[in-house]
Design a protein around this nucleic acid. Structure first.
Length: 297
DNA sequence: CACCATGTTCCTTG
DNA sequence: CCAAGGAACATGGT
């Protein structure tokens, strides 16, 4: 469940449920998720602390903890959901799911961190934040910044969008969606984007992310994923029911389906070990002069 | 059995 | 030092 929009929606959901709550205890069922701390070290640092604030940076959840009484500095705890992580609040007396990795007790309720693949992390090591690029929806992410950042690389633009030090929070789904929306070939070397392409790409990134946040804020979500499928965000394929997500993604995981713009079959290829989905017609490397592409240059 | 999956880090190689 | 590519991590779906 984790790219910028999902983490943002999750943070907004959890904040009112968690702020002001005291962490009474922690249960660690998968030690690797909290490495390099041991379960005892984590408990020592967290027990009795009050959750003061919850925000997001890139794909990280940022918890501000106030240790015990008025004593001590505020400390920062990071949560990262990896590929399959979930975090949710629910009554403490409910049985734990198979892949519950860390459980914070908040009295009558628990904050559960569950992760099928255990790629997620909970850590006090905040140094990673300093390596993140600007927030794509923030004021620093200007066209001038993006152009300068892309100019230094021959790497394919699709691969660069996944570089968290370039811009924070874009993952494989929204990288694909943003490039499709901008009408830019995923193969185009970063430094070869024209000025107008850089502008379009920046705008597409922002629109794609903002729309996903808006969508995720509107629709009721299944935080604990009890429906079996991942109905939380990406693959809302519930039969019937108002299914906003069904048509939300234009290219991701749509190999062979007709492009929504031109009806060409969408293609899947691999770049940097990750799938790239794109329309070979709308996202051609060299746009056909004779064909009206609809993407202004 | 094969291949694929929303992510990051570490290790090579150039 | 940097850029780029690949494996590893762990589990499950198809």
């Amino acid at each position: 469940m984790p790219e910028l929009p999902e983490v943002e929606v999750l943070a907004r959901h959890l904040a009112p449920l968690l702020i002001g709550k005291v962490i009474h205890g922690v249960t660690v069922r998968r030690a690797k998720v909290i490495a390099p701390l041991s379960p005892l070290q984590l408990i020592r640092r967290v027990r009795g602390a009050t959750i003061q604030a919850l925000s997001r940076r890139g794909k990280y959840l940022v918890f501000q903890l106030q240790p015990l009484p008025p004593k001590g500095e505020c400390s920062t705890l990071l949560g990262h959901l990896g590929m399959t992580g979930r975090m949710y609040v629910r009554p403490a007396d409910r049985p734990l799911p198979r892949h519950a990795a860390v459980i914070f007790s908040l009295g009558r309720q628990n904050l559960v961190f569950e992760d099928q693949r255990y790629f997620g992390r909970i850590t006090f090591a905040t140094a990673v934040l300093r390596r993140l690029g600007p927030e794509p929806l923030g004021p620093e992410f200007t066209a001038a910044y993006l152009r300068a950042a892309l100019q230094r690389s021959r790497q394919a633009v699709k691969v660069k969008l996944l570089d968290q030090s370039l811009v924070a929070g874009i993952g494989n789904i929204y990288a694909n969606e943003a490039l499709f929306r901008a009408g830019i070939s995923p193969f185009l070397p970063a430094k070869e984007l024209s000025s107008s392409q850089v502008h379009r790409l920046r705008q597409s990134i922002r629109l794609v992310l903002a729309e996903a946040i808006a969508g995720g804020s509107t629709v009721p979500l299944d935080w604990a994923g009890t429906q079996g499928k991942d109905r939380l965000f990406y693959f809302g394929r519930a039969a019937g029911t108002p299914d906003y997500y069904e048509e939300r993604l234009q290219v991701y995981d749509r190999t062979g389906q007709p492009c929504g713009r031109c009806r060409h079959p969408l293609k899947r290829i691999v770049q940097g070990g990750r799938s790239t989905f794109f329309c070979p017609n709308c996202q051609a490397r060299i746009p056909h002069r004779s064909r009206a592409t609809g993407f202004k240059t």
